[in-house]
């Protein structure tokens, strides 16, 4: 595959690199895990295969040989020599054709998978580019396609990006906030700020007030953690979050809500809802 243009931001991603937190290495991985898994399943790739995570479209590539490819996660589609395909539809691409990723109108991050997967070297067991830690493969001008064993492609799922209500479980530090702050979290609307990235979705809205004002010793954080810095404006940690954080986390998104958060565009409005408790 020859890369002709990368668009605003295109990086390799996979299931991430857990197991290295004690060395200060975050888990990283695809920001929208559901869309990542769907992309590989649709072309019959093994579960951990590398894909390209493409923010706001713009990627243009050409293949030396014929490939099967798919794009998931948003309403962006693949174009083959300028002809657009359907959303999340597996496309057969002839040798020499130029393939593009359109700009999504809904959603933010699209996942581009080719049957066989991209042949890039793992770093600490993962082919994910972690932009915060600066670890992972770099997208060069040519990429080899793996001829690893593949299975039968799975049928497609529809994309659902309508509801921007994010389900959360309270904790670990909800008791560091006033009762009014917890009520505000579940009633107010927040707007995604332009400074959002794969490290954190930054939200603007009513400030959440602390009940305890002392400094929290840094502690480990997870994807989906809703951290409240002194400004009171929530930051939702995404895949490339740091290993630890120094501000209290009021709540954590469910895994499905964390995938939804991956697709929130700057300017979009989000709300939080308490998830049904499971244990």
């Amino acid at each position: 595959m020859t890369v002709l243009r990368t668009g605003p931001l295109t990086v390799f991603k996979d299931a991430g690199r857990p197991g290295h937190a004690h060395q200060g290495v975050p888990p990283s991985g695809a920001v929208d895990r559901g869309a990542y898994r769907r992309a590989n399943a649709l072309v019959g790739n093994p579960a951990g295969a590398a894909v390209l995570e493409c923010t706001l479209g713009g990627l243009r590539v050409r293949f030396d040989g014929p490939v099967l490819a798919v794009l998931t996660g948003t309403d962006a589609v693949l174009t083959v020599d300028g002809r657009p395909s359907d959303v999340e539809k597996v496309v057969s691409i002839p040798a020499g054709a130029e393939v593009g990723v359109t700009q999504p109108r809904r959603g933010l991050r699209s996942y581009f998978a080719v049957r066989g997967g991209f042949d890039v070297s793992p770093v600490l067991g993962s082919r994910s580019k972690d932009r915060l830690a600066g670890i992972g493969p770099v997208l060069g001008t040519t990429v080899r396609i793996t001829d690893s064993p593949v299975s039968e492609p799975e049928p497609s799922f529809p994309v659902g990006l309508g509801d921007l209500t994010l389900e959360v479980d309270l904790g670990p530090r909800d008791d560091w906030f006033t009762a009014a702050a917890v009520r505000t979290l579940f009633s107010a609307a927040y707007v995604a700020a332009p400074a959002s990235d794969s490290v954190g979705l930054r939200l603007e809205g009513p400030a959440l007030e602390r009940a305890r004002t002392e400094e929290l010793p840094s502690e480990g954080v997870v994807r989906g953690a809703v951290q409240i810095p002194p400004s009171g404006q929530p930051i939702v940690f995404q895949a490339d979050h740091p290993v630890t954080g120094g501000y209290p986390v009021i709540a954590v998104l469910t895994p499905a809500a964390a995938d939804l958060a991956a697709q929130v565009r700057p300017g979009a409005q989000v709300r939080f809802r308490r998830a049904r408790l499971i244990d």
Partner: peptide
């Protein structure tokens, strides 16, 4: 033990 989402325990 503090609740920390569905994929961790603090």
């Amino acid at each position: 033990f503090l609740r920390c989402g569905r994929e961790a325990v603090l």
